[in-house]
Design a protein around this nucleic acid. Structure first.
Lengths: 204, 204, 204, 204
DNA sequence: AATGAATGAGGATTCATTCAT
DNA sequence: CATGAATGAATCCTCATTCAT
């Protein structure tokens, strides 16, 4: 009995409420009541649209990472040169202190779970793969353009790029100061470019 | 609050049990009963040595990061040349699939909490600072030795190095395959070295 | 309360669905949703035809016992001699393992309720009275025929006959083996006949 | 982890409270709160002594039927002649309106469940077997004494005797009148004796 | 010191019932 | 007439914490 199609609208509303709630209070401080309150619906409604609390969260992770990926892809496709694409990619993640704080708080909660739950890990893998594909394409383009180190393996570089992005944002989050957001983004940009061997780029 | 020094032994025993329990089942699936069972003491004892469950966890984070830092510092001090020190640093983190899995599972749980709790963030900052100091010293040494890019700011490079290390281990953890542990370690080593310009340096 | 005769058809359909659902899952595992699903109507419809869940169940008991009684009466009236009528009566209850299982499961649920609810008890009493009347008439006929013990009080014998029938079927149900259905029916037949002194009568 | 031995005393207290509660309100109207209240303990205590609500009930059935059986066995063993034993057996069941009402209310609830739950059925089977053994021994003794019909199979008669006893008490319970308790007991006694063919007994 | 019995607040989940469409 | 979305009361269960022994 896959009760679906019950107003996709309201499902989104609940997912967003769950996101807000987790961002605010943390994964396990969040109750269905909190979510329901935040979504301005009754407690029963959450269960009407979702099998269980777990189901809400699984779908939330899926939805969140899906959205992030779409934004990254869109940002990258607006540029034509490899270096510009890479900057666009990084900048599309470093959106703003507020958004990054909310997302990475929630994302860290999910990663913690994912380390033990195959379901979460699965969803996250899809996200990683998507991000890796974006990076790899940019790297290959850059190599064609002659601006990135031609000896690099695009496939092997992608995870490192993601490491730098996620690592920097986690450290920024742990630091707790909004002002440093731009600083960490800069660390990230420079590190990635250095990594890609764009000595050339820096020279200019 | 006389409760201290009662038996530093037993406190450690409980902390280790908590670590094992969290690594195994996850932060919120862990109950005081679980910890007590795992430490082979009664539930009451845990409360006898620690104010509350929260107190156990705060101390656990402190204890854990302290140990990791000590190992890193020890490993680095055994080498004399910058490049060797940096490899030693990285390798001291990439200990083994089993240990890394346990630690990063627990650590991710703490990071998730830390994003909202000043107490955890405080402890983690101390850890970050210690790690950053190690990296910075190595970078400076390498610059003196002439093997690392002299234009780099040691202070600014440190967080990126940590990003790569943590980022790679997180991705490895999400991947779920022990065999890839060495692969990710390699990505990490190469990326850090490339970043430090040792290759470029050699190239020119 | 105009709600009647709306469609006697659909009321029956719902009652039968309720019967099936209770037979299958048990009284309190049954929800209005289950009933509605089983009756291939929407949940709202059940409430449209019945005041409440309780109302469905009260009417179900009434309907069920009514049907059983009709079958008993019909079976008995097809025979003309007392002994044959009594056998027909018993056999009309011991229909088949499948039907008896379904009915007695549901009936036990009702008896449990009836022990505390006057409404259910009322309905059940009507059933008991009907059954008792059938038995009593057979007994009296048998006494006229000279095949049943003439010293027996027809009124007092009826409940004992019903005890044996219900008691045997309950024990069979608790036993869980379809194969024993015929065996218990046999116990029942013999016991009733012995009770009515037909054997003694023959003996003398 | 079979947490046991936690004061067998209190377990009994909770079981008795559960019995009282079910007798009063019915199986599914009974909540853990009701039981806890009735046992004058906190809600948590019930879960401390029993795995779950289900576990309480399973143990209750076991405990109840065990006690009933012991009483029957004790009553029978006090008599030496078959007919007296059989009367003692019947009378040990027909204790008093109050006790029979409580027991049969609860017992009917269990029977209803047992028809679907193997665990309950198992326990009830043990009870049936015990009762059957008592009856069978009495019947055989009576046959030796020459007061019971020697053609009867003791094994096959036992279930019928239990049917009459249970059947009569259920009908009495459905009737709702305390005054009829003695009347139904009498029906039961007479029917059983007639069944056992003790024409002899009646003549005297 | 240590134990583990007892407490009770809090949370996920279920479901009869209501009601707008 | 019919639907199924929405509600929220009620229930089982978990667990940190307290405390008598």
């Amino acid at each position: 009995m896959v009760r679906y199609k019950k107003s996709e609208e309201k499902r989104k509303q609940i997912l967003y409420a769950a996101f807000q709630a987790i961002a605010g209070q943390g994964y396990d401080a969040v109750t269905l009541q909190t979510i329901a309150d935040s979504a301005k619906v009754s407690k029963g409604v959450v269960h009407y649209y979702f099998e269980s609390k777990e189901a809400v969260l699984v779908e939330l992770l899926s939805w969140l990472t899906g959205k992030i990926y779409e934004k990254e892809a869109a940002a990258v496709s607006e540029q034509s040169k490899a270096a510009d694409k890479m900057y666009a990619y990084i900048d599309s993640v470093f959106v703003s202190p507020e958004k990054n704080r909310d997302f990475y708080r929630v994302y860290l909660d999910f990663l913690a779970r994912a380390s033990r739950s195959a379901a979460y890990r699965e969803i996250n893998s899809r996200f990683y793969d998507n991000c890796a594909r974006i990076s790899a394409e940019i790297v290959e383009l850059g190599q064609h353009e002659g601006v990135f180190d031609s000896r690099l393996s695009a496939r092997e570089t992608a995870p490192v790029i993601r490491s730098i992005i996620d690592g920097c944002l986690i450290q920024w989050l742990m630091n707790g100061q909004d002002e440093l957001h731009a600083v960490y983004r800069d660390y990230c940009r420079k590190a990635v470019m250095k990594l890609l061997g764009s000595e050339t780029g820096e020279k200019s």
